[in-house]
């Protein structure tokens, strides 16, 4: 079983996930309400990507983790806990306390390159799929299989 996500505010980073071998998600633009950035960091290599949902590269992500990527890391740590994020991205924190800052420091120290795999479209469609869950109707017919998924007080 997986521990449930921890509650967090969603305005800045409405979507973050650990999937497809990446930490990836969607970050709101600070200036334009209609625009979002799709940001990601690959596990092991820490290669980073950031572009708008229309595939325009982010000006801040040249040789550096831009503010969107930093926000993504911060919210991933809130949602999943720093340890789970570090484990998923395969970051060796040595003796540092697991946190958003120590994660950024450890990953950036390896001089990661830009990720040209073009994951933005996939990530954005996963975000739309995520949003579509809100549109699904509840049912009062029993789902006996949910007995296999108990709640837990443990947090991620």
């Amino acid at each position: 079983m997986i521990a449930p996500a921890r509650p967090r505010k969603l305005a800045k980073v409405p979507f973050v996930e650990l999937a497809d071998g990446r930490m990836q998600g969607v970050v709101s633009s600070g200036s334009d309400i209609g625009r979002v950035y799709v940001s990601s960091i690959a596990a092991s290599t820490y290669a980073y990507g950031c572009s708008t949902n229309n595939n325009r590269p982010c000006g801040g992500a040249r040789g550096w983790y831009c503010n969107h990527i930093r926000a993504l890391i911060g919210e991933a740590v809130l949602q999943y806990g720093a340890e789970r994020v570090a484990r998923y991205l395969k970051v060796d924190l040595a003796d540092a306390e697991p946190s958003g800052d120590s994660l950024i420091d450890a990953m950036f120290a390896t001089r990661p390159g830009a990720d040209h795999s073009g994951a933005a479209a996939t990530v954005f469609s996963r975000f739309l799929r995520h949003l579509a869950y809100l549109e699904l109707a509840p049912t009062t017919a029993p789902l006996p299989e949910m007995q296999w998924f108990p709640p837990t007080r443990a947090v991620a």
């Binding site: 996500a5 509650p7 869950y133 809100l134 509840p138």
Partner: peptide
């Protein structure tokens, strides 16, 4: 008597 619904993982 039950009720169920799919949800985004951030609704907790």
């Amino acid at each position: 008597a039950g009720v169920s619904v799919p949800k985004p993982d951030t609704v907790v």
